[in-house]
């Protein structure tokens, strides 16, 4: 399969603390890759380097063969990246409808229009209505994000990332705070044929979600890729159990 995303020897440090020690991996077109690891392993940092929020200290990031290491975030998004956040990240002072409209307009030239009302862009507004209908928030479109429930906020968060139809989707803990049922629904959705051609890099603590979605799993441990394989291989890997499931068993 063609390669969609390539992370090549990426190192990242916060001050003197090196968080990523030259990690390398690729994600093929349409491939679903799970990125797991204990807290502080560098998962979110890896996503930030890939999406451009953090400039990497060294190494390269390529999207569909193009070197995007030096590109700012908005250029990477325009090239077909989408990103959701671990901590719900919405526009708190704007209505839910306007949150979605901004998500749809982000990669479009029409977002620079200054003298036409945002509601006069018919196709964008129709798309926003459909997106909001699909997450049952159309009725609440005039509410602020703080006026809807946490589960609804999470759904809105994911919808914002999906609105621009990315080729690569970076999901940071999409199931954080969701019920088991909702999390299962999310997993089922990510495996739908619709997303066949969307490469997904899924960071999650929710093992059911990762094992259900990912074709391949990478285990990040203290900034290095510690193990790599299919769900079964990772589940059978003793060393992974020790660092990951072991600690969880200990906690339980």
């Amino acid at each position: 399969m063609a390669e969609m995303l390539r992370i090549d020897n990426v190192t990242q440090a916060y001050g003197g603390l090196t968080v990523l020690h030259g990690i390398s991996f690729t994600v093929a077109v349409g491939e679903k890759v799970g990125l797991i690891g204990p807290n502080g392993a560098g998962k979110t940092t890896a996503l930030n380097v890939i999406s451009g929020l953090l400039p990497s200290v060294s190494g390269r990031v390529c999207l569909a063969g193009q070197d995007i290491t030096k590109l700012p975030v908005h250029r990477r998004i325009a090239l077909g990246m989408g990103r959701s956040f671990q901590i719900t990240s919405l526009f708190p002072e704007l209505s839910i409808l306007h949150n979605v409209l901004l998500a749809l307009l982000g990669v479009q030239k029409s977002s620079y229009h200054m003298l036409r009302s945002i509601t006069s862009f018919k196709p964008v507004n129709a798309a926003a209505k459909e997106l909001l209908d699909s997450i049952d928030l159309w009725q609440a479109r005039d509410c602020l994000p703080s006026e809807i429930s946490y589960g609804q906020q999470r759904r809105l968060e994911l919808t914002l990332a999906l609105a621009s139809r990315p080729k690569v989707l970076l999901l940071d803990e999409p199931s954080a705070g969701l019920s088991t049922e909702e999390s299962a629904g999310l997993g089922k959705m990510l495996r739908l044929p619709t997303y066949e051609n969307v490469a997904i890099l899924l960071v999650a603590h929710d093992m059911d979600l990762v094992f259900g979605v990912a074709d391949r799993i990478l285990v990040l441990y203290y900034g290095t890729i510690f193990a790599e394989g299919t769900a079964e291989q990772i589940q059978r890997n003793d060393k992974v159990r020790e660092i990951y499931f072991g600690s969880e068993a200990y906690r339980a």
Binding site: S110, K122, P123, A127, L131, A163, S164, G185, L192
Partner: peptide
């Protein structure tokens, strides 16, 4: 919203339709 996975499936059906191009 209705609980469970329904919602997410409907987001997915929209995904292919959501207009990426200009207005």
């Amino acid at each position: 919203g209705k609980p469970g996975g329904d919602t997410y499936q409907r987001v997915a059906t929209l995904f292919r339709g959501a207009s990426r191009n200009d207005a």
